[in-house]
Design a binder for these strands. Structure first.
Lengths: 156, 156
DNA sequence: ACTGAAAGTCGTTGCAT
DNA sequence: ATGCAACGACTTTCAGT
């Protein structure tokens, strides 16, 4: 749904805001070469149209007691619409599941789970993931190290 | 490196700021039941200590012309320290690679790539990924749909 | 759609507790 | 580590181009 055209000003605004979400409107306006009022209206329009989904503080997981991260490949038993939507609804509610993608390839879904330690991951599997309907295979790959962890979409 | 203790106030601040990164300090202070000055000092301390890595605008990839997403599983040929660090340094510089993790399991690295279309992905593989030293296997799994895409770390 | 200025709100600091 | 108070800076709106 790429209805609205973004011009160079919008793209530069997004480029800056993706890295400095709390920059003042004045400073942003200066950097992109627009008056504060014009810049402010563009930012509001980008928010209202959903190009900017929201603003967020990015937190270091290890520093808040969640140093363990796993990529979980999941295959469903039969691909009925019911079990799939049920799976998706429940997975969405688990706060330790930060990302969940339906993918091509061997797995039906790939999850990124951020959690306290192995004991907590064991509980996550037994009490949450394994209770989901229609699960066939679960492969847990643990993250040894994050080489890169970025949220900024590249701007053309 | 979890040196500093976070109390309930800090955790509540982080909980709110992860969802509303641009909330005013006054409103935040109200929500967590602290004076604006005390709240402000805590936020600054969380930023300075690195618990908050940064603030960011979260942008919808499809709305800025990058609707394609792939999870790429990569195996290196020999696991010499040289080729590994070289691989990591170069992958970090590619803006279309948003995430790169070293993992346990079959793959050595898992990448999340956000890109314009298949032609651009083809170029990414040939001009960037395949030119990296020591690559043995590359498995591209395309994201059919994002069921969940969250940045907020769960707060205990 | 932009600029410039006006009015209102907020961030930020210093001081006292 | 907290609250209060004051100043300066910023956001936000509106009239005019």
């Amino acid at each position: 749904m790429q209805d609205d055209q973004l011009d160079g000003h919008d793209r530069r605004i997004l480029k800056v805001l993706q890295r400095q979400g709390r920059i003042t409107n004045q400073e942003l306006a200066e950097q992109i070469g627009l008056s504060p009022a014009a810049c402010w209206r563009r930012v509001k329009a980008l928010e209202a149209s959903g190009v900017i989904k929201r603003f967020a503080a990015l937190v270091d997981p290890a520093r808040v007691g969640q140093p363990l991260c796993a990529l979980v490949m999941i295959t469903l038993r039969r691909h009925s619409l019911d079990s799939t939507t049920d799976f998706e609804e429940r997975v969405t509610r688990y706060p330790e599941v930060l990302q969940c993608y339906a993918t091509t390839g061997n797995a039906d879904f790939v999850l990124r789970v951020v959690i306290e330690d192995m004991a907590a991951y064991d509980r996550f599997l037994n009490e949450k993931l394994f209770t989901l309907p229609g699960i066939s295979q679960v492969h847990s790959n643990f993250v040894l190290r994050a080489i890169k962890d970025e949220t900024a979409i590249p701007m053309p």
